[in-house]
Design a protein around this nucleic acid. Structure first.
Lengths: 204, 204
DNA sequence: GACTGATACGAACGGTCGTACTATTCTTGT
DNA sequence: ACAAGAATAGTACGACCGTTCGTATCAGTC
């Protein structure tokens, strides 16, 4: 997420810096709030100079989302993969996810969650990208649950989709309560909710 | 939500019609997507004629939210109050809430949930109104939980805030999965989640 | 040293935004 | 039926939107 090292062309470096800044703006102002003019000001570029990197606003949005999804993978998914299969990995995914939504680099929360409610009624490539990313994440959660069953940590009749569904709900309410309501106990309550959710399916 | 009967001045009638239409637009396009021009077209008024009813865009947004919250009360809260105190009432609140988010008059889902992620980083009266409404709803949910404890339906050590928190999460994920992902099983899974949530705190 | 491609800038386009003013039409009470 | 006043339309404004175009700067190649 920081300016990456050399060995790349200047255009690529500028583009990466633009996307970093854009992701912060999207986090705070939403995808609709990401404007070529404000992004140009924030990066110190001219509108036209910035525009040339993407060719259209929609291309810019798609690039920002791709950038955000890549970072999500690095910050949330990959560290969790270092944990043992099953419940430890699933818990890590959840905890990393919460940390991501409260990350300092995302002052306005997860851009994908914010974008979801902005674009859920606007068909097109942006919506498709959002939906695709979130579907993939759900599948990842389901896979972790299945592995917990294989490891004998959750009972055989566990429904991975139901668990992924409920976990997603906990993450959403954390995001919602913290950002709109300033609810401080969100993280604590989320961990309680996850524990009791998993306990329901624990091996007896 | 439909044009109400006579006995009111014409201005009030058109104002109500404007708010009905505005609520539908907000549902689909979000609060940011509600513009004076499109709303004027949708209602058959001129921009200036419509504008005169509110005086500013922010006043319009506040009026739309007040209208939405009033409808929420009529459609979700009041019918639930007709149910017996405790779990029946709590369940009715939840079921009515889900139905509200999928209501035909709200083609894009709950305007307040959508507005929440748009305005969670934009301080001001709109955000305050959104937060106030949702805090009030949370308190209503907590009250229903407390009454279920009083009625002996939930155990004494039940934490109403935790339950309200998790219920809110289920509602959010239903909204999210249905609208962005077109997930058909959302309602069914939500009812499963609610049942097992309440079972955790059932009297033993 | 001339040429080329990448990169960025400045100015301008048509369009829409919210808002302000004035004029006109329509309701309504008498 | 008519005047008073509410309700709506008309017009114009400055700001910003995404986008396009022509141009300037600079790195590297021949």
């Amino acid at each position: 997420m920081n300016a990456q090292a050399q060995s790349t062309t200047k255009g690529e470096r500028t583009r990466a810096a633009i996307l970093d800044e854009a992701l912060r703006i999207v986090s705070k102002a939403g995808l609709d709030g990401l404007t070529i003019g404000t992004l140009a000001d924030a990066t110190g570029l001219s509108k036209s100079g910035l525009f040339a990197h993407f060719g259209s606003r929609e291309e810019l949005l798609l690039a920002v989302l791709a950038h955000g999804q890549a970072e999500f993978g690095e910050v949330v998914f990959q560290p969790a993969m270092a944990k043992p299969r099953g419940l430890p990995r699933l818990r890590a995914m959840f905890v990393n996810w919460l940390a991501w939504t409260e990350s300092a680099e995302l002052p306005g929360g997860c851009p994908m969650i914010g974008g979801a409610s902005e674009f859920d009624d606007k068909p097109g490539p942006v919506r498709d990208m959002l939906a695709g990313g979130q579907r993939a994440w759900i599948e990842t959660l389901k896979r972790a649950v299945r592995q917990a069953v294989e490891e004998g940590q959750l009972s055989e009749d566990t429904d991975p989709e139901q668990i992924a569904f409920e976990i997603f709900g906990i993450a959403l309410v954390v995001h919602h309560h913290r950002r709109l309501l300033g609810y401080k106990k969100a993280r604590e309550r989320a961990l309680i909710a996850l524990d009791s959710l998993l306990k329901r399916y624990a091996v007896s």
